[in-house]
Simulated assay, not measured.
Amino acid sequence: MAETTPNGIDAVDRRILRALQEDGRLTIQALADKVGLSPSPCLRRLRQLERAGVLSGYSANIEQKAVGLPVSVFISIKLERQRADNLDAFGAAIARWPEVMECYLMTGQYDFLLRVVCADLEAYEHFLREKLTQLEGVASIESSFSLGAVKFSRVLPI
């Protein structure tokens, strides 16, 4: 009997997920061949993974420097108050801004950690002055500029 995880993912599902992380453009036939299934059962499993929310979408990986956004800034935010409504309001504002690539609610010294991309320091200053500092309830902002990525991966170790 195949070993399954608590969320019902078995070894075949993991092979499907690993293959798609390597190449999300695989045809069903190529995916089926790669994981040792025929196309129909492979497609059924793929659709089940999508319905279960394990696969949340498909996208292209775009090199940020190649599209004129070479600057990555990691921003630590502390709010004046950490009540649920303050956290939710901050999260809702951040969700509207395309410069914010990632936003995490954190434990520790800061409440949020953001990764922002921009074209240059002037663009970052504009983001900081016109958006971030205009939010109600922000107590402190600390910016750290990335000098380069040592490792960047979207591939989960499954």
Rank of each mutant, 00 (worst) to 15 (best):
M1T: 12
A2W: 10
E3A: 12
T4N: 11
T4S: 14
P6H: 03
G8S: 09
A11H: 12
R14P: 08
R14T: 03
I16H: 00
L17S: 00
A19F: 05
Q21T: 06
D23F: 03
G24L: 03
L26P: 01
T27D: 00
Q29P: 00
A30H: 06
A30K: 09
A32P: 05
D33G: 04
G36A: 08
P39W: 05
P39G: 06
S40K: 11
P41W: 07
L43P: 07
L46C: 04
Q48S: 14
Q48W: 04
L49C: 04
V54S: 01
V54R: 02
S56W: 01
A60T: 10
K65M: 10
G68A: 02
L69T: 04
V71Y: 04
V73W: 06
F74W: 06
F74Y: 12
I75P: 06
I75F: 03
I77W: 03
K78V: 07
R81C: 06
Q82M: 11
D85P: 02
N86D: 15
A89M: 01
F90L: 01
A95P: 00
M101K: 13
E102C: 05
E102F: 02
E102D: 10
Y104F: 11
Y104I: 01
T107W: 07
G108E: 06
G108Q: 07
Y110T: 07
Y110A: 06
Y110N: 07
Y110C: 01
D111I: 06
F112P: 02
F112V: 00
L113Q: 09
R115W: 03
R115M: 11
R115A: 08
V117E: 08
C118I: 01
D120H: 08
L128R: 10
R129Y: 10
K131P: 07
T133F: 09
G137I: 00
V138G: 05
A139Y: 09
A139H: 10
A139V: 08
S140L: 02
S140N: 09
S140A: 15
I141C: 00
S143C: 02
F145N: 04
V150L: 15
K151P: 05
F152Y: 13
F152R: 15
S153Y: 03
S153H: 09
R154I: 12
P157A: 14
I158E: 13
